[in-house]
């Protein structure tokens, strides 16, 4: 087991260095200059531009800049945003909890609905329920979520007025960030009104972001369950006269969960993609929106640092999923 973990780890480090290099090079290839972009209609005097480029270190050869970047990164310094002059890491720290809160809630939403739906669909195969779940989930899977978000806003926020339109919490609540997760911070504060406000702000973005994972989980659960239900040991258990519920809940589900867990792990990368769109539409103060702005402003340090941190997180989650999978299923351990 340890060897398996170590081999996986040894793959992670070169991948990470590869990401730093790829991201560094890609970002420098983007045409445009952060200083010029900021200058607006006024433009900027060439002499001052040259001076500023020196001040920001853009005048050095790319390789030197990359080396400097790596060595600073080793000390935990990801540089400062060119637009705001704040350290990238501290901006990330303020914004990341919002993204996490949204993503975790979206995944929970997807699991809570997708798992039971998939199980029931499998058990009642070819029933109306099964067809309904499969039809809906395929629709969800095909959904352009940016459009889905607009529709939900139009219906629930504008027409019915049930949910807030954007943001994380109503402005009248003054919550000092402790963890950065508003659902937790409001409870620490003991302010239930604020908690409800935070919750109601979460509803639509969570539905939007959770739609695709929900569809995927429901489909995966159904097919995994179908496969397991066809196995001999299930038939044996049934034949022995065990209650139907017990067979499904204990014997079948446990084995069917293995592929489902993998799929959930794989959804993490997908979630970030969805988060970029969801945050943009709902003005959710998270990392996705920050990165889009970073691209528009040619804010190299933000883009670089943000992409790296997200890449690192995706890698760690994938690693954990791999390890967990290896633990559940010994065959995988020796496959490589």
């Amino acid at each position: 087991m340890l060897r398996f973990v170590l081999t996986r780890l040894s793959l992670v480090i070169p991948t990470f260095i590869g990401i730093t290099l790829l991201v560094f090079v890609l970002i420098r290839l983007i045409p445009g200059d952060p200083i010029e972009t900021m200058a607006g209609e006024h433009g900027i005097d060439p002499a001052r531009l040259a001076q500023l480029r020196v001040d920001y270190g853009f005048d050095k050869p790319l390789l030197v800049q990359y080396g400097l970047y790596l060595s600073r990164m080793a000390h935990g310094d990801l540089g400062r945003s060119i637009a705001t002059h704040e350290p990238v890491i501290s901006e990330f720290r303020t914004l990341f909890p919002a993204t996490i809160e949204l993503s975790v809630c979206a995944i929970l939403f997807a699991i809570c609905l997708g798992l039971p739906a998939g199980i029931i669909a499998a058990v009642r195969r070819n029933s109306i329920f099964d067809h309904g779940v499969m039809g809906i989930s395929l629709t969800g899977y095909s959904m352009p979520i940016f459009w889905w978000a607009l529709l939900l806003i139009l219906l629930f926020s504008v027409q019915l007025g049930w949910t807030p339109v954007s943001g994380r919490i109503a402005v009248q609540y003054f919550i000092e960030p402790v963890t950065g997760f508003l659902l937790i911070d409001t409870l620490i504060d003991g302010d239930f009104g604020a908690f409800r406000s935070a919750l109601s702000h979460l509803v639509l973005p969570v539905i939007v972001l959770g739609t695709v994972p929900l569809a995927v989980i429901a489909r995966m659960t159904r097919s995994a369950m179908l496969e397991v239900l066809g196995e001999d040991y299930i038939r044996t258990a049934r034949a022995k006269g065990l209650p139907r519920f017990r067979v499904i809940a204990i014997h079948a589900l446990r084995n069917a969960l293995i592929p489902v867990v993998t799929v959930i792990g794989l959804q993490v990368g997908v979630l970030f993609t969805g988060a970029i769109l969801t945050e943009t539409i709902f003005s959710w103060p998270g990392v996705g929106k920050w990165l889009i702005e970073g691209i528009n402003r040619r804010d190299y340090p933000v883009l670089q640092g943000g992409t790296l941190l997200i890449g690192a997180i995706v890698m760690i989650v994938n690693l954990l999923v791999d390890v967990a999978y290896g633990m559940i299923n010994p065959r995988i351990r020796y496959a490589r």
């Binding site: 991948t15 997908v270 993609t273 769109l277 990165l291 992409t307 997200i310 890449g311 995706v314």
Partner: peptide, 8 residues
């Protein structure tokens, strides 16, 4: 390539 969010 797979580690970076695809849309990004």
């Amino acid at each position: 390539t797979l580690t970076l969010p695809s849309l990004l």
